[in-house]
């Protein structure tokens, strides 16, 4: 050990609490904002305007809603929306996989960006950069042969 235990203990307590408090300062207003989005159906309205984006990504139009919800509000709301949509009107398997590709690369963009911002990362790079990467990965995956069984090709032709 290169430091005494009292130094170590002090660093653990002050450091972890200041991290949590820093995160909280952004988290509380954000959670309230996200709750407003949820209650006033902001995402549903926005999704209608952004439908053309799905064509670029290689998805079918209804996929925009879970995508948008997960990107902006976080993965819990996103999966919730996805599961609910699947119950009413199942998405094709290809869309399901592609949405997951996008999800995993980029979710909860407001929350995570703000939190990493407090840790000192460049906010613009981690928000816009992530969106771009998620879009590129999804576009590439949509055109890869591995995701395309014969049944998906039919779906695309419709």
């Amino acid at each position: 050990m290169t430091a005494s235990w009292s130094v170590i203990l002090n660093e653990i307590v002050t450091g972890s609490f200041s991290t949590v408090i820093n995160v909280l300062k952004v988290l509380i207003p954000l959670m309230i904002l996200i709750e407003f989005f949820h209650v006033f159906h902001v995402m549903e309205k926005l999704a209608k305007k952004l439908t053309p984006v799905t064509k670029v990504l290689g998805l079918s139009p209804p996929a925009i809603l879970p995508l948008l919800v997960a990107t902006v509000m976080g993965v819990t709301y996103g999966t919730g929306t996805l599961i609910e949509m699947n119950r009413r009107n199942p998405l094709p398997k290809k869309d399901f996989i592609l949405i997951a590709v996008f999800f995993f690369t980029c979710h909860g963009i407001i929350e995570t960006t703000a939190i990493w911002g407090t840790a000192g990362a460049n906010i613009l790079v981690i928000s816009v950069g992530r969106l771009l990467f998620a879009a590129i990965f999804t576009m590439v995956a949509a055109r890869l042969p591995i995701f395309k069984g014969p049944e998906y090709v039919e779906e695309q032709a419709e």
Partner: peptide, 30 residues
């Protein structure tokens, strides 16, 4: 009601946050 729900969610997140941050922080400092 919305503000209340949002705050409750934030507090819940904080609790899960503490559960992660505290042990991880301690482990990493050591």
């Amino acid at each position: 009601q919305t503000i209340k729900d949002g705050t409750i969610k934030a507090v819940k997140t904080t609790l899960t946050l503490m559960k992660v941050v505290l042990p991880v922080y301690a482990f990493v400092v050591i």
